[in-house]
């Protein structure tokens, strides 16, 4: 699967699950796996780090 931003090849691990964040190795954009049915994967723009994130 290619990066929706820059078209570089994304490395999505076999065991990746819905909700996981994938980063593009080329442009650094973050995507969240929004759907996964077998090899059919859909991505959406990941939430940016919120001001209230962390611990």
């Amino acid at each position: 699967m290619n990066c929706p931003e820059c078209d570089a090849k994304l490395n999505i691990p076999e065991d990746a699950s819905v909700g996981e964040i994938i980063s593009c190795p080329d442009c650094g954009a973050d995507f969240e796996i929004s759907k996964k049915e077998g090899s059919n994967i859909e991505l959406k723009q990941a939430e940016t780090v919120g001001e209230d994130w962390g611990e």
């Binding site: 699950s17 909700g19 996981e20 964040i21 969240e32 990941a46 939430e47």
Partner: peptide, 10 residues
Amino acid sequence: LYDSIRWEEK
């Protein structure tokens, strides 16, 4: 209950 799946949640 999560909002982002990190290593911890996996």
